[in-house]
């Protein structure tokens, strides 16, 4: 069973939900932090020794002694990552998606592939949670490739929670694809409602079942609840607007540990979503 946690915009409490569900459930599970631009789950789940791997993609390297500047590669590349206009081909590795096309189209076989680092994946056992954290290198644009690397570390023998990046575009889709269920976290404000609608469109686009978790409940109005009722989307959990929660969060503490009265709500939700039929399945 894979549960993905996402939101139309950041800062709605996605990571709070992910780490607290993971800890409160009590059984062993994997938490895949796919918010690779700003991975935060590790801040709330200390402990264990970390092992780190470097993630690379393959990018072209031009052998200048063979390149005659024919320009085939640069005409092919959809991302303008290799340029040759009469002169020897020049690679802009930060724009390369690693598709391998230029290598194949080069008539003189002047291009080969070399690895280029885009970030790291870190693994750590924090209590019941096996945490896998993807971290995109600063200046890299290839979040989707790094997210794929995090998801490739999925342990099929246990349930998994995915902390997805915020938004509605390629990184989110890459993170959420293949999940069995999606929780969308939002706030009871006009921004929250608007972003929720976008997130709902996105998960509908990839046809996954989903529900909503309302964070900071009570801080705004009831438009989100009304929208959910009208759209037939269940709200599975409301986390109240409680300054103590914001303060625990600010110090990097788990809500289910600092404020034990919340523990059972998270544990029940985790059991409901993660211990269903397909548990342990791909």
């Amino acid at each position: 069973m894979i549960l993905a946690i996402a939101s139309g915009k950041g800062g709605t409490g996605k990571t709070t939900l992910a780490v607290n569900l993971a800890r409160a459930c009590g059984f062993p599970l994997q938490l895949l932090d796919c918010d690779v631009e700003e991975p935060n789950a590790h801040l709330f789940l200390p402990g264990g020794t970390a092992t780190e791997e470097t993630v690379t993609i393959r990018v072209p390297e031009v052998d200048e002694s063979l390149c005659d500047g024919c320009g085939e590669c640069s005409r092919f590349c959809a991302y303008h990552a290799i340029v040759s206009t009469g002169a020897k081909a020049l690679v802009f590795p930060e724009m390369c998606h690693g598709c391998g096309g230029c290598i194949k189209v080069c008539p003189r076989r002047a291009i080969r592939e070399v690895p280029r680092r885009i970030g790291t994946v870190e693994k750590r056992q924090a209590g019941n949670v096996s945490l896998v954290t993807g971290r995109l290198d600063v200046g890299s644009v290839l979040a989707p490739a790094l997210i794929r690397a995090v998801k490739a570390r999925r342990d099929l023998s246990r349930a998994a929670v995915i902390d997805a990046p915020p938004g509605t575009s390629c990184p989110v889709i890459t993170a959420v694809r293949g999940a069995d269920y999606v929780l969308l976290v939002t706030e009871p404000t006009p921004f929250g409602l608007h972003d929720l609608r976008l997130a709902v469109d996105t998960v509908r686009e990839i046809a996954l079942p989903f529900a909503v978790v309302l964070n900071r409940a009570g801080s705004g109005d009831d438009r989100v609840q009304r929208y959910c009722t009208d759209a037939g989307v269940p709200i599975l959990l409301e986390i109240p607007d409680d300054r103590r929660i914001a303060e625990a969060y600010s110090r990097g503490r788990l809500l289910v540990e600092e404020l034990p009265e919340y523990r059972e709500r998270f544990a029940a939700l985790a059991r409901q979503l993660l211990l269903s039929e397909s548990s342990g399945g791909g």
């Binding site: 092919f76 959809a78 998606h97 598709c99 989707p144 694809r177």
Partner: peptide, 12 residues
């Protein structure tokens, strides 16, 4: 949704 539009398949 997964296609990144690189064009490799189209060409080959």
């Amino acid at each position: 949704i997964a296609c990144e539009g690189c064009g490799v398949c189209v060409r080959f």
